Amino acid sequence: MYNRVRRRKVAEINVVPYIDVMLVLLIIFMVTAPLITQGVKVDLPQADAEPLSKDMKPPLVASVDVDGNYYLAVGDSRNEPMSAEEVATLVAAHLKLEPDTPVVVNGDGAVSYDAVIQLMVMLQKMAGVPSVGLMTDSPERQ
């Protein structure tokens, strides 16, 4: 008869496929991260102001460009123009989930004062934002 050699079963997890998957995901995130951080080109007015503190939540940024188009940047940046009512609706929905999120208006320096004020009023009346901040560039950044 045969002398069978009994092999012991291996009770180890093979982690090599998991490492391969993690490296592929790392490469995907490294390539897509710069594409996600695109924004709207806005020339901010210069002013001396205190920056937001590091321990605050990231703010909602409502932007107005030279052509009068409105944009909203939340966690996931949206780069397509929208109406002021859409911005107010999105801000109101976000504030229902996280009520202590700061809201700032990012208006181009060449945009009319009326467009910035209308956006601020819309955010306060329609979205229920208690206070709206204005985003500026410091004079030294020129």
Rank of each mutant, 00 (worst) to 15 (best):
Ala127Cys: 07
Ala47Asn: 06
Pro45Arg: 10
Val21Asn: 08
Val129Arg: 03
Gln142Arg: 15
Pro139Asp: 14
Ala127Ile: 02
Leu44Gln: 04
Val132Glu: 05
Ala110Ser: 10
Val42Arg: 07
Val121Tyr: 09
Arg141Tyr: 02
Asp65Met: 09
Arg8His: 11
Leu72His: 02
Asp43Ser: 12
Ala127Asn: 03
Ala49Arg: 15
Ser77His: 07
Val105His: 01
Met1Lys: 00
Arg8Pro: 05
Gly39Asp: 13
Arg78Gln: 12
Lys54His: 03
Val42Ser: 05
Val87Gly: 01
Met30Val: 10
Tyr71Ser: 01
Val87Pro: 01
Pro34Leu: 12
Gly68Phe: 06
Pro81Gln: 03
Glu98His: 14
Glu85His: 02
Pro130Lys: 07
Leu60Pro: 04
Val21Trp: 05
Thr101Asp: 06
Val103Asn: 04
Tyr113Met: 12
Met22Glu: 10
Glu50Cys: 00
Val129Met: 03
Val105Ile: 12
Asp55Tyr: 11
Val24Lys: 08
Glu86Phe: 02
Leu134Arg: 05
Gly75Thr: 09
Ala110Asp: 12
Ile117His: 04
Val5Lys: 04
Asp100His: 08
Ser63Tyr: 07
Arg78Tyr: 08
Val61Leu: 14
Glu86Leu: 05
Leu119Ser: 05
Lys9His: 10
Gln118His: 03
Pro81Leu: 02
Gly75Arg: 11
Asp114Pro: 01
Pro34Val: 10
Val87Cys: 01
Tyr71Ile: 02
Ser83His: 05
Leu123Asp: 03
Ser63Ile: 08
Ala49Gly: 06
Glu98Gln: 14
Val74Ile: 00
Leu44Trp: 09
Pro59Thr: 07
Leu95Val: 09
Asp48Thr: 05
Ile19His: 04
Val91Thr: 01
Gly107Met: 07
Tyr2Trp: 01
Val42Tyr: 07
Val61Glu: 09
Thr89Gly: 07
Val21His: 04
Asp20Val: 09
Val74Arg: 11
Val116Tyr: 05
Ala92Asp: 13
Val16Pro: 09
Gln38His: 14
Thr89Gln: 14
Met120His: 07
Asn14Thr: 10
Ala47Asp: 08
Ala11Tyr: 11
Ile27Pro: 00
Lys125Trp: 05
Val21Cys: 03
Glu86His: 05
Val31Lys: 03
Met126Leu: 06
Thr101Tyr: 08
Leu119Met: 14
